[in-house]
Simulated assay, not measured.
Amino acid sequence: MKIETKAIHLGHEIDQETGAIAPPIHLSTTFERDTDGSYPRGHVYSRLSNPNRDALEKCLCGLEGGEGAAAFSSGLAAILNVFQALLPGDHVVVSQDLYHGTTRILQDILVPWGLQVSYVDVNDFSQVRAVMKANTKIIYLETPSNPLLKITDISALSAIAHEAGALCVCDNTWPTPILQRPLELGADIVIHSTTKYFGGHSDVLGGAVISKIKDAFFDKIRMLQQIGGAVPAPFDCWLVLRGIQTLSCRMKNHSENAFGIAKFLQKHPGIQKVHYPGLVDHPGHDIVLRQMSQFGGMLSFQIRGNKEEALAFIGRLKIIKRATSLGGVESLIEHRASIEGPQSKTPDNLLRFSVGLENIEDLIADLNDALG
């Protein structure tokens, strides 16, 4: 099956008792044992497994092309579990331009726990090789990155990781497997915040880890999921699985709208810089042509001015909503540095824009009016 067909059908088996096309929601926290004490239906307790979570994990495996998937209660829970599967004293190499929540996990939780972290420009391969150690276990990247949309060559980074006996872990939340397939490009593990494009409607929280192979490292992630208990509720799994059914058409429309808006903003005198890999002057444009089918629905841009002028601009928007998060059908914009806090390295005049599915003419008119 092609990926568009998989998105609609994986995890959506016909209910054998009722013939229902839509899967039922199994809210039960516990499951009946047989008279001999066994669990012939495969489920014991919903922290360990649940029919809705099983269906979602099966779908995620099929979409990314992996052998194992573990669903979590949030994207950060998924990221935390991957790093917790390491040991104190292990070393990881991490991209400098990174979602601030990932940085908080590393600095506030895992470094005090004993993890060694090196932040580097992952597009400078000599810099990456220079920080690799005998105890390096993971090279971790986002591409496109959050919030500057830097593009990293997944195949090249995966090769460097494998040369050192390490894993390449890629956060694929922004492109989704519709636009980018890291496991096929050499990565070993893919991470998602399913809150975003998978859910697609800003109404469910979730995360996921998909592994190319079911090995001992994935087994440890599964153990941490089940024992730690940061699992999504059955209804949350149901919502994400439902959202995935329209993922392919949504991603195509998100991408088309974002590309058109990036070209509009690039020509506007009120904009200093646009960060979008579809633009030919983007430093990663050639790489993204090789590893993505479209350029995605996320962009960021810098107002010609300071923080106050950036905030004043988004205050004048009428259709585009001022809110954090991304990937919903509605367009969302935020002043990123104020979200990231005092340690942020994001420019004060930068705005991150999750381009929704509204008519592009309405979005451009809203931006144009607010820019004056």
Results as ranks from 00 to 15, higher is better:
residue 119 Y to T: 04
residue 206 G to I: 06
residue 167 L to E: 01
residue 32 E to S: 14
residue 136 T to H: 05
residue 92 V to T: 05
residue 175 P to C: 06
residue 265 L to F: 07
residue 325 S to G: 06
residue 211 S to P: 08
residue 239 L to Y: 08
residue 140 Y to T: 04
residue 61 C to F: 03
residue 95 S to C: 07
residue 167 L to Q: 07
residue 307 K to L: 14
residue 369 D to I: 10
residue 36 D to F: 09
residue 89 G to Y: 10
residue 22 A to L: 15
residue 6 K to L: 13
residue 124 D to G: 04
residue 58 K to I: 03
residue 13 E to Y: 08
residue 10 L to N: 00
residue 88 P to L: 10
residue 123 N to P: 02
residue 272 Q to Y: 04
residue 129 R to A: 14
residue 247 L to F: 09
residue 133 K to D: 05
residue 228 G to A: 12
residue 96 Q to S: 10
residue 97 D to M: 10
residue 116 Q to R: 15
residue 85 A to V: 13
residue 343 Q to L: 13
residue 52 N to Q: 08
residue 192 H to N: 15
residue 242 R to Y: 02
residue 353 F to W: 00
residue 140 Y to F: 15
residue 87 L to G: 08
residue 151 I to T: 07
residue 277 P to K: 03
residue 55 A to I: 02
residue 218 F to M: 14
residue 203 D to M: 01
residue 338 S to T: 15
residue 166 A to W: 01
residue 280 V to E: 12
residue 245 Q to D: 02
residue 178 I to A: 09
residue 370 A to W: 04
residue 210 I to T: 10
residue 309 E to V: 06
residue 37 G to E: 04
residue 33 R to P: 10
residue 28 S to T: 05
residue 142 E to D: 11
residue 340 E to G: 10
residue 118 S to F: 03
residue 269 P to G: 03
residue 260 G to L: 11
residue 96 Q to W: 15
residue 319 I to N: 12
residue 275 H to F: 15
residue 289 L to Y: 02
residue 94 V to K: 00
residue 287 I to L: 01
residue 279 L to F: 14
residue 183 L to Q: 05
residue 322 R to C: 13
residue 232 P to G: 02
residue 145 S to K: 06
residue 86 L to Q: 09
residue 329 V to D: 12
residue 257 N to W: 01
residue 120 V to E: 14
residue 73 S to E: 09
residue 264 F to C: 03
residue 289 L to C: 11
residue 177 P to C: 12
residue 298 M to A: 03
residue 352 R to M: 14
residue 16 Q to E: 04
residue 317 L to Y: 13
residue 250 R to C: 08
residue 133 K to F: 02
residue 204 V to C: 15
residue 96 Q to E: 10
residue 129 R to N: 09
residue 145 S to W: 11
residue 341 G to S: 01
residue 54 D to G: 00
residue 140 Y to Q: 12
residue 82 V to S: 07
residue 200 G to S: 02
residue 108 D to I: 10
residue 90 D to M: 11
residue 320 I to H: 07
residue 31 F to Y: 10
residue 138 I to Q: 04
residue 362 D to F: 02
residue 6 K to P: 01
